[in-house]
Amino acid sequence: MPNDPRSRTVGRPGPDRSGEEGRRLPARAGPRVRAAVRLQLSFPGTALSVRKVLQTVRTGLEPLALDPEETGTIELVLAEALNNVVEHAYPPEARGWITLNCHIAPDGLHVSIRDKGRPMPDGGPPLGQTAPLPETLDTLPEGGFGWFLIRDLSRDIRYSRQDDTNELCFRINLHRAEATAPGDPAP
């Protein structure tokens, strides 16, 4: 089956995302049928841009009618992954651009993040094991939680470096998400 024509890109305030609404509504729209959402955003690698992009993503995901916990998970994982690029791939004197792609599939939200900054050290994403809780207050960790959260809340993490571009891909399970993919035969 072809891709659902209601797939759309939001983010850039594109003029035309109307006109296709209402077309090809699933005949058996039940709670497990999700709207098709596809987001592509490019933005400067700064913490404030990341904050704005997260707002744009929240808005873009509204057609999915996710529950607040799922939305929170997506926002948190994206925040951690994007802020890692801001803080580690791009040094302060050489800011660059980040491109974020998200789309919904039967097995959850698929995410790709690309940048042209420094490669990951050791050629791959950190393991992000839980920091052991030290006995004394003074040595409590103030950092290192980011990769732990990404690994805990996402699946299928892959990192690649091609030419001068880093790409990090992962998937976020949406737990009601035996979401029927657009075009799938109805159950």
Partner: peptide, 16 residues
């Protein structure tokens, strides 16, 4: 309504 690992680290630092 939202905190990330940087914010969490800042609260830990604030306590210390």
């Amino acid at each position: 309504d939202f905190i990330d690992s940087s914010g969490l680290g800042a609260i830990v630092a604030a306590m210390k």
